[in-house]
Design a protein around this nucleic acid. Structure first.
Length: 495
RNA sequence: GGGACUGUGGGGUAGCUUGGUCCAUCCUUCGGGGUUCGGGACUCCGAGACGCCAGUUCAAAUCUGGCCAGUCCCA
């Protein structure tokens, strides 16, 4: 006789923060994306938005697991390119904040101020960092003395604050941002350009881990980062003409280095000014993953960010001699030893209810352990894309590795297929109106023509592709018809 | 930046127009018991709410004002 099933599963840490709450059916994703997004984030219990300050949400235990996995990908990839972690303070004196004119113009309407210390008013008000250039660069000026100090590549993952007046949304638009920012100093403009390229490569690898296709575009002059020489942004099409900016890389030239005095002595003994770059990402990536991959059943996490890669569900039965609970525990332990993030759901719910809950929560792979499997020396594995099969118990670890890899591959293939269908060329401005796609058009580079395109699509000229796209280069500007200097440009509606 | 609407247990809602019927309804959730368990089980017992602050009134979930938060639309 096998041991009887325990009356009640032992409590685990996850019980305090349930991975997903059951709820009525989700709103239709295709028909009402925003409603679907808000509902799925709440139902999967990734974020608690009941905190009583606008745009500041609570990270739940389950959401925190996803965030840490996301950050692990970011830190691994950026460190592989020779960047080191640092952490600078959150408060910036107004005097430093105001040194670069364009930068402060771009940000002063959206910063939080600290104006009092205890009961007394501060002589110099402090800004809660909306981004950290002005906190970091005065110190860079002290750190950089010689060409031997270059390149200086550092990054930090910290919270930044922006006083958003628009509607805020979990992960996508928040006032307290979980921000990844790399700041670098380079010998000269060419070296800074090379660093930008290195960042583009790093992001390509990050996005691959998240199974996210994207457009790398150089933003038009009027939409670049405040203080930048140029900005390259990563845009994810989200259905219709909508795009979500995933992050950006900026070339600053010496725009900040001059006002902040970041100089060095070159090999030839002359004093030179560094050229700088930055690379910014945020938890918006998590929103993008939810938005791009999720379906009518809930979230779908790629393995790299999934809070749990595998959930094991025992199927109890009173009429068997098999020791199902012990067998399930053994499966979990074996996977844990193999380094997998795995969760045993031994709760009182019936198996079907657990399937729904974990599908809502986005776990890539579910393993079912029941009398039927044990009698055959097998396990049942079902992935989040609906593929179910029997695997041999004896080769558990290798089978799981294979199934997760296949899952990631299929997830990426599906996202890639959606991506290809999301972009279409347009030869006339009329085609931009109420467009159901992101549009690729000819653009002469003129700002007036750019704004005409923006008006036509009721959105933004995202910019010119920085990486090759499988689209023909148009012969004439879609607005003025000029053929001189015409380039391919993308237009869409930023979320 | 401008406007519209909304706020009732953990989640979704009824009640609000016409103040008293409401120690507030239903579903879900949560805690406990029992029967169960291969795609959202059933049953019994129990828990839990009128966003905050003022005002009007004999009486406020309900009317008024302010604040906070949320949703949507426009620039």
């Amino acid at each position: 006789m096998g041991a009887p099933a325990p009356r009640r599963a032992p409590r685990t840490h996850i019980a305090a923060g349930r991975p997903a709450r059951p709820m009525a059916d989700l709103p239709d994703k295709a028909a009402n994306f925003i409603e679907w997004y808000l509902a799925v984030v709440e139902a999967a219990n990734l974020s608690d938005k009941r905190y009583p300050v606008k745009g500041m949400n609570v990270w739940t235990p389950y959401g925190m697991r996803a965030r840490r996995n996301l950050d692990r990908v970011l830190t691994t990839e950026i460190e592989a390119t020779g960047s080191e972690a640092v952490e600078f303070p959150a408060l910036i004196p107004e005097t430093e904040f105001a040194k670069e004119k364009e930068h402060i113009k771009g940000f002063d309407a959206q910063v939080f101020w600290v104006t009092k210390g205890g009961l007394s008013t501060l002589d110099v008000p402090l800004v809660l960092r909306p981004t950290s250039e002005t906190a970091i660069y005065p110190i860079f000026a002290l750190w950089v003395r010689s060409h031997r100090d270059l390149p200086l590549n550092v990054y930090q993952i910290v919270n930044t604050f922006r006083y958003e007046t628009k509607t805020t949304r979990p992960f996508v638009r928040v006032r307290e941002i979980h921000f990844f920012e790399e700041h670098t100093c380079q010998l000269d403009e060419a070296a800074a350009t090379a660093r930008v390229q290195s960042n583009l490569g790093a992001f390509r690898r990050m996005a691959a881990a998240f199974a996210l296709p994207y457009l790398a575009v150089r933003r038009p002059e009027w939409d670049k980062f405040a203080g930048a020489h140029y900005t390259i942004a990563f845009d994810l099409p989200l259905g219709g003409a909508r795009v979500l900016q995933l992050g950006s890389v900026h070339h600053y030239r010496d725009n900040f280095a001059v006002p902040y005095g970041i100089h060095y002595e070159g090999i030839d003994g002359t004093e030179r000014t560094v050229h700088q770059t930055t690379f910014g990402l945020s938890e918006r990536l998590l929103g993008a993953i939810v938005g791009a991959h999720g379906d009518q059943r809930g979230v779908i996490f790629p393995t790299a960010v999934a809070p749990y890669e595998v959930v094991v569900i025992p199927i109890p039965s009173a009429s068997t001699t098999q020791d199902v609970p012990s067998a399930a525990r053994a499966v979990v332990e074996e996977l844990q030893r193999a380094g997998r993030r795995v969760h045993l759901d031994a709760g009182d719910e019936r198996p079907g209810a657990k399937y729904y809950r974990w599908e809502l929560a986005g776990v890539p792979l579910r393993i079912e352990v029941g009398a039927r499997e044990l009698e055959r020396g097998q396990l049942t594995a079902a992935d989040r894309l609906g593929r179910k099969q029997a695997i041999a118990r004896a080769s558990l670890t290798t089978e799981i590795g294979r199934l997760l890899a296949a899952f990631d591959q299929e997830l990426a293939a599906r996202a890639q297929a959606a991506f290809r269908g999301a972009i279409a060329p347009a030869a006339t401005l009329a085609e931009l109106k109420d467009s159901e796609r992101v549009r690729a058009v000819g653009w002469c580079g003129d700002e007036a023509c750019g704004h005409a395109i923006e008006t036509a699509i009721d959105g933004a000229l995202l910019g010119t592709p920085e990486e090759p796209l499988d689209l023909p280069v148009p012969k004439a500007c879609v607005h003025c018809g000029r053929t001189e200097g015409v380039r391919l440009a993308l237009a869409g509606q930023p979320m």
